[in-house]
């Protein structure tokens, strides 16, 4: 039974490792300027964690294989013969293991920690450039809507009391009174020019949501009552998906929008097209 147990553990581990090694299921290919650092950290961790996992499981299996005895007959369990054995102790004992764990894991932790700070800092501790394109995204049950400042480069103020999805006033704009709001473009999908920095202004109109674009390596919750800012640069033209990852109610699974990364020319055309539709 011990051998069977050991074999089972090994087989499970090998089968589990195969999809990882063959990369059967993997994150969507990165399309952002900052994403490579995250991917590097991810695969570095994968290698470290993978080796730790396989090594400890294999040793566990090996020890079970080696140090098990046939079960005593269950009829008289409490009278089973017990051999007094010269208990061999693990070389080095507890002290050795503790020291090994602190050194090995400590180094791993430090390495990952420092590595991690780098990619995190590059995203969150930097300021967007002055020429970054501002785009506002508003999350609400259960859709994203996007706002572009229009030719004047200014966003009109938001009036929550004017929000009316039934009148397609998703943001609560008042173009008749607010000069800045007159040329604001509101869209249901997001388009951005490739290789240009985007300054994303995140606003939630009701509950907590999240802005998760796996391909863009962007993931940030919306906090109602607190507008957050992100900045990023997309480097590859294409159509990607924005999904909500923070449980927001019954339509959570269907809260999504498309992200179109397009050339600068196409983006200008798109803006004009959208303006005509307003």
């Amino acid at each position: 039974m011990a051998k069977f147990f050991a074999t089972t553990i090994v087989v499970i581990m090998v089968l589990s490792a195969i999809p990882i090694i063959r990369n059967t299921w993997h994150p969507l290919p990165n399309i952002s300027a900052h994403g490579q650092a995250i991917d590097d950290e991810m695969w570095g961790t994968m290698i470290e964690a993978g080796i730790s996992l396989l090594a400890s499981q294999f040793i566990l299996a090996w020890f079970i294989w080696k140090f098990s005895v046939p079960p005593a007959s269950s009829a008289k369990l409490d009278k089973a013969p017990t051999l007094v054995i010269e208990a061999k102790s693990f070389p080095g004992g507890a002290t050795g293991l503790v020291i090994a764990a602190i050194i090995l894991v400590g180094m791993e932790v430090l390495a990952l920690g420092i590595f991690g700070i780098k990619s995190w800092a590059s995203m969150y501790f930097t300021q967007p450039g002055a020429d970054a394109l501002p785009v506002q995204v508003q999350a609400g049950q259960f859709a994203f809507y996007f706002r572009y400042a229009g030719p004047d480069g200014k966003f009109g103020p938001l009036h929550p009391d004017l929000i009316s999805e039934s009148n397609q006033n998703f943001f609560g704009l008042d173009p008749t009174h607010d000069q800045d709001a007159k040329d604001d473009l509101v869209t249901a999908s997001m388009a951005i020019p490739v290789n240009r920095e985007i300054r994303l202004l995140m606003h939630s109109k009701d509950v907590s949501h999240s802005f998760y674009v796996p391909a863009l390596r962007i993931h940030q919750d919306f906090v109602p009552g607190l507008d957050l800012q992100l900045h990023f640069t997309a480097t590859k033209i294409g159509k990607y998906e924005i999904v909500c990852s923070q449980l927001c109610g019954l339509g959570h699974y269907n809260m999504k929008a498309y992200l179109d990364v397009m050339s600068a020319d196409d983006f200008d055309k798109w803006l004009k097209q959208q303006a005509a539709l307003q």
């Binding site: 609400g140 999805e165 039934s166 998703f170 109610g249 019954l250 339509g251």
Partner: peptide, 12 residues
């Protein structure tokens, strides 16, 4: 009574 679909916010 105003009726909405939240999954499709334009539905009113």
């Amino acid at each position: 009574i105003s009726v909405k679909c939240n999954i499709h916010p334009w539905m009113h």
